[in-house]
Write a protein that binds this DNA or RNA. Structure first.
Lengths: 133, 133
DNA sequence: ACTAGTGTTATAGTTGAATAGTACACTATG
DNA sequence: CATAGTGTACTATTCAACTATAACACTAGT
């Protein structure tokens, strides 16, 4: 019952979208399993210090994406269709990589540059992150 | 004089930030050279069909980042400090890759997965983009 | 029935992005 | 000095996200 969750909110993106992504990641990584009950509107509102209406909107969107199901009076549950979850995972990963590659290309980087940078990111990540020529 | 520019605006991000990124990319890729005059507030407002106040805010932010300079009564100009431009380029690229890698890891992908996916993205990009097991 | 815990809906108010319109200040040019 | 093209500043308005609060509907358990 005591999750102690806290999301760092980015002011430049609506909160309901950020919570959506948070929940979806929980489901995709298996922290929320198919069929699991997800927190109630009021519960999550208290936990995240967010207005219940905003949580409600979040959940409605998640339901629209068919990744959670509502049983009125009972609560909301993660969909049991694992294929739907895999589908959402691929969609989110696809969006990430599309955004990344397009952004890098718009900055003037070419394929080999990008591949190198990604590899380096992991190496540099293991030590530190500073500027290099 | 006739650029015929048009930006596809994303509703989930403030317009002034999107225009900022657009201008910064123009500078980083050399389409706007150091010392070049950038469009005036009113000119760009007409070109992008955006309110002058929004453009004004965009330019103020660009000036705060020291990537453009203002000469009152004359117009705004791309900074002549190329090191500043390189710095901004590295910052934007760093943000992109950080956002990408963190996002992928939050979806459960590991280093080797990510490297594979990036490579595949270029290959798949050359033919088409569909779903694969 | 009653109660508690769900989802659902509705109204009103706050905040910030963006728009609309106007006016003022500075600079170059004639 | 007059004009045109700059940046700058201000007020008012619209719109969506978010908040605050309340009420209603459904389900399970007692």
């Amino acid at each position: 019952m005591c999750h102690e969750v806290s999301i760092e909110f980015d002011n430049n993106l609506p909160i309901y979208l950020q919570i959506m992504n948070y929940i979806k990641k929980q489901i995709i990584t298996g922290k929320l399993q198919p069929g699991d009950k997800i927190p109630s509107v009021r519960e999550l509102a208290v936990e995240l210090q967010i207005n219940p209406n905003t949580i409600q909107r979040t959940f409605q969107e998640l339901e629209r994406e068919e990744i959670v199901e509502t049983r009125r009076g009972l609560g909301r549950y993660v969909t049991s269709e694992e294929s739907k979850i895999m589908s959402i995972k691929k969609e989110m990963a696809g969006d990430l990589i599309q955004h990344f590659i397009q952004g890098m290309q718009e900055l003037g980087f070419k394929e080999k540059d990008i591949l190198t940078i990604v590899s380096d990111a992991f190496e540099t990540d293991k030590s530190n992150l500073k500027e290099e020529g």
